[in-house]
Amino acid sequence: MRLLVATLLIAGCAVEYLVVGDGMPAPLTKDAVLAESGRDVFVDREQGHCVLCHALENLDVPFQGNVGPDLSDVGLRLTPAQIRLRIVDASVVNPRTVMPPYYRTTDLHQVAESHVGETVLSARQIEALVVFLSLQRKKA
């Protein structure tokens, strides 16, 4: 199995992350997170706002996007490790992806001054998403 260790520079300190196959097994934070807060990260404009591109059948939110795939059954298709890696940096899996890298600060250009050096989401927000999305197991 392909084993890849990449180093990310976040807020000045080096954070190592381990990519195993097409997943990232280790949580970004050991804090306990709730699926309910993952739902908010998924929906809120000020947080992940993933509904910009993704839809969930069990979500009562108008105008869900369809630039990315419907995630209603993502918990059946992907492991938490795979979901985590796709949120952290989907380009590891698909270099041409349109999905933004939510936990990467390197190799970006012309980043808005107000966001330079920052990740889009925090470790906690991403772990909340991983829990929330792992529970999306609607059968087609």
Binding site: V51, Q64, G65, N66, V67, V98, P100, R104, V111, A112
Partner: peptide
């Protein structure tokens, strides 16, 4: 920060819904 090009929305994904 979202690492996107104009082309990814307006060449590759026009017609799709962004919210």
């Amino acid at each position: 920060q979202f690492n996107l090009a104009c082309s990814q929305c307006h060449d590759d994904h026009w017609g799709r819904m962004l919210r």
